[in-house]
Amino acid sequence: MEIAEHLLYTKDHEWINIEGDEATIGITDYAQESLGDITFIELPNIGDEVEQFGDFVSVESVKAASDIFSPMSGEVIDVNDDLKEDPGLINRSPYDKGWIARIKLADPEEQSNLMTAEEYAKFLESVG
């Protein structure tokens, strides 16, 4: 199970890459593996306001539909349009080509509620 070193993580298996006051969001390798083949994603609209740990996007795999939550609050400034035609990018490249959206951060302090890569690795061990 791959965990990217430079990212922050949630207990719901989302990741966030903070670059200044903007950030990119996706789901982890563990998440894509658990979901199986991802077949559909409902992306947010640019301009949508999202809250930390609030509803963000919904994804469907062959097996089920699941909700993805935003790791931090902010405004959506970009979405990965490639996922509309090829949501399997999330399975093949969860930390890179399978990114979901970028947000402008509302409150950088919120990152203290997230886990480092090391903490997330321990968390995964604890959930077995």
Binding site: D12, H13, E14, A31, S34, L35, A64
Partner: peptide
């Protein structure tokens, strides 16, 4: 993401 695990 919430993952529903099938308990076997």
């Amino acid at each position: 993401m919430h993952v529903a695990m099938n308990m076997l």
